Amino acid sequence: MKGNTVFKRSYNQCLRRLTAHDIGAALPSESDLAHTLDVSRTTVRAVLASLAEAGIVSLGTSGRALVRHPLEADYFPDMQTLSAGAAVERRFMEWILLGDFRAGQLLNAAELARQFGTSTTTIREYLAQFQHVGLLERRPNSAWLYKGVTPDFATEIYDVREMFELRATRSFIELPDDSPPWRELDAIEAEHRALLANIGEEYRRFPQLDERLHRVIHETSNNRFIIDFYDVISTLFHYTYRWNRSDEQQRNTVALMEHLDYIEALRSRDQRAIDARCRKHLRTARATLARSIEFGPFRSQPIPAGVST
């Protein structure tokens, strides 16, 4: 079981939720945990047993309770919690956005498949996602042109993101209070407050919370174009933000506070308040991306003369 990706991912998810609980607090039932983590009760039992073995929870006859808060060392490394497809995605994004890769360069699907240990078909399907948003352009002979993350690209992407997210909030607030997305929002809010209380040590955990909050909103749209779009931009932007880490703690703190304001507006079900706080947060995120692009100037250079687009 310890070598199982699903188990490790569920274990880490459970740890993140426990950070928002008080010491001695009772844990949710196996059924509730299985629903929250979207896994079987068998997996939940294995997670609970490992948490008890690590001294994080107690499993006494009187019930399950939190003994101590998780430490960074308690988590499995991120790469051990990824599916094969997600692992390829992670390696590709690190290679193209964190390496010395310039706008105008060509990618070859067959070479990428060999480099990342996967099939050419998998690579082509993955690259096609970025073709849809204009980051890549398909060329003959399995080649792809990387067009770069430029300020104009960021502006266009954020215009679409704002439109899609505002539409998704309308679906979200129509859901009943006891629906799974609202329960997930409760957990996300609690984790925001726990992270703020320990922001000096754990501020780099913010991207995971950011992705979860916006994803739970987008997915309630039940619109495959909105959901697919968010799959691409969440991956792209979280890697691009890493170009500039000079003020990472400060900007993550600001974003956490804006998230809490956004969540408060969602709870009010007041669409005008939701629109205002969503737009404010996305303006901040847009400015963060713009500053990050400045720290990766070689990625935003114009496509060299002689390279057609």
Rank of each mutant, 00 (worst) to 15 (best):
M79I: 14
L127D: 07
L106Q: 14
M79W: 09
K147N: 08
A109V: 06
F101I: 05
A110M: 04
S83Y: 07
G134I: 11
N141E: 13
F92M: 12
W95C: 10
A86D: 15
N141I: 10
L97T: 02
V133F: 07
E94T: 10
H132V: 14
W95F: 13
R114F: 12
L127C: 02
A87N: 15
P140D: 14
M93W: 06
E111P: 02
L127K: 02
R114N: 10
T122Q: 11
L127W: 01
E137P: 00
G117P: 13
E89T: 12
Y126C: 00
F76R: 07
L136S: 03
E111H: 11
E89D: 09
V133M: 11
S142G: 09
G134S: 11
Y126I: 00
A109M: 07
G85M: 09
T122A: 14
R90P: 06
M93T: 11
W95N: 06
V149L: 13
L136D: 06
R138P: 12
L145N: 03
D78W: 14
L107F: 08
A110G: 09
R114V: 15
R102G: 02
I96K: 05
E125I: 11
A113I: 00
Y146V: 10
D100R: 09
L98H: 10
G134V: 05
I123S: 00
R139I: 01
L98I: 04
P140T: 01
E125F: 02
G99C: 04
L112R: 00
L97A: 06
K147F: 04
I96E: 05
G104T: 08
G104L: 06
L106W: 06
R139E: 11
T122E: 12
V149H: 10
T121D: 04
A87K: 15
L135D: 05
Y146K: 04
L98R: 13
G148Y: 07
V133Y: 09
F76M: 04
L106T: 11
R124Q: 14
K147E: 06
Q80R: 10
A87F: 15
Q131N: 12
R90G: 01
P77R: 07
N141K: 15
W144K: 02
L135Y: 04
P77K: 07
D100W: 07
V88W: 00
L145Y: 05
Q105P: 02
E137C: 12
T121Y: 02
L136N: 09
S142R: 12
E125T: 13
P140L: 04
K147G: 04
G99F: 03
Q80H: 12
I96Y: 01
Q131V: 15
L112H: 03
H132A: 14
S142Q: 11
E94L: 10
E89A: 10
A128Q: 13
G85D: 13
E137K: 12
A84T: 15
L97I: 09
L145D: 06
L107I: 04
S83V: 03
A87M: 08
A103Y: 00
Q129A: 11
R138E: 11
L97W: 08
V149Q: 03
F130K: 04
E125W: 01
T120S: 09
